[in-house]
Amino acid sequence: MTDPDRIPTMAELAAAGEAPEVLFWVGCAGAFDDRARRITKAFVRILNAARVRFAVLGTEESCTGDPARRAGNEFLFQMQAQQNVAVLNGYGVKRIVTACPHCFNTLRNEYPALGGSYEVMHHTQFINALMKEGRIRVEGGSFQGKRITFHDPCYLGRGNGEYEAPREVLLKLDAALVEMKRSRAQGFCCGAGGAQMFKEAEPGAKEVNHERSEEAVATGAHIIAAGCPFCNTMLTDGVKKLQQEGKVQVLDVAELIAGAGEL
């Protein structure tokens, strides 16, 4: 799926007088980070396989403002948020799906106060719905029998109460889903939230992502499943630090589904 013609933008659709089923909010990581781009492409393969009529904002998409707001810069957040709301409302967007829990949280919970109310879904929720509707089918595939552990993103789990959708999706892989010592509401942060991704960690005895990666590796899982591009980066680094990258892979839920279904 590398054909740019297959990725419609809102502008193109609007010009043709059409509206998509859902807007795919790619997010900054999904657009610019080399690792996260692979998640974006995997999710697009799923969308195409399910024949979802989606579109992206493309060059009209801009940071939701999440990191600026968490870092205390409310002015910058408002600049981003209000401009994004204007663009989204301009296209009459109703439904949004995103593979980033931080974009998800901001779009879902913080834009309504600024006049931007949409039905916002995390991509694991969206994939779960597609599976339930029978729009995509995955039968074990290459991950059959593997041990997988899911790392709850704080902004999806504790933040928005979604613990089950990613697990329901993973169970379709016929893999053994194993839980870490701290999971769901007690899940342990990867260390990236609250704008930490964009700064050095404060002085301490250990990096948060190393602690979490140790816990994930201790489950004996072959795969650490993530649902957030930032968690993915943090855990990938952590697994490398533990010199386990040959044995343990960090993959997004979308990559697992796209990989298993050979989409």
């Binding site: 590398t2 740019p4 990725i7 999904g30 657009a31 610019f32 781009r37 992206v56 493309g58 998409e61």
Partner: peptide, 8 residues
């Protein structure tokens, strides 16, 4: 922003 679609 001009690089936003490079992933595709």
């Amino acid at each position: 922003p001009d690089k936003r679609m490079d992933w595709a």
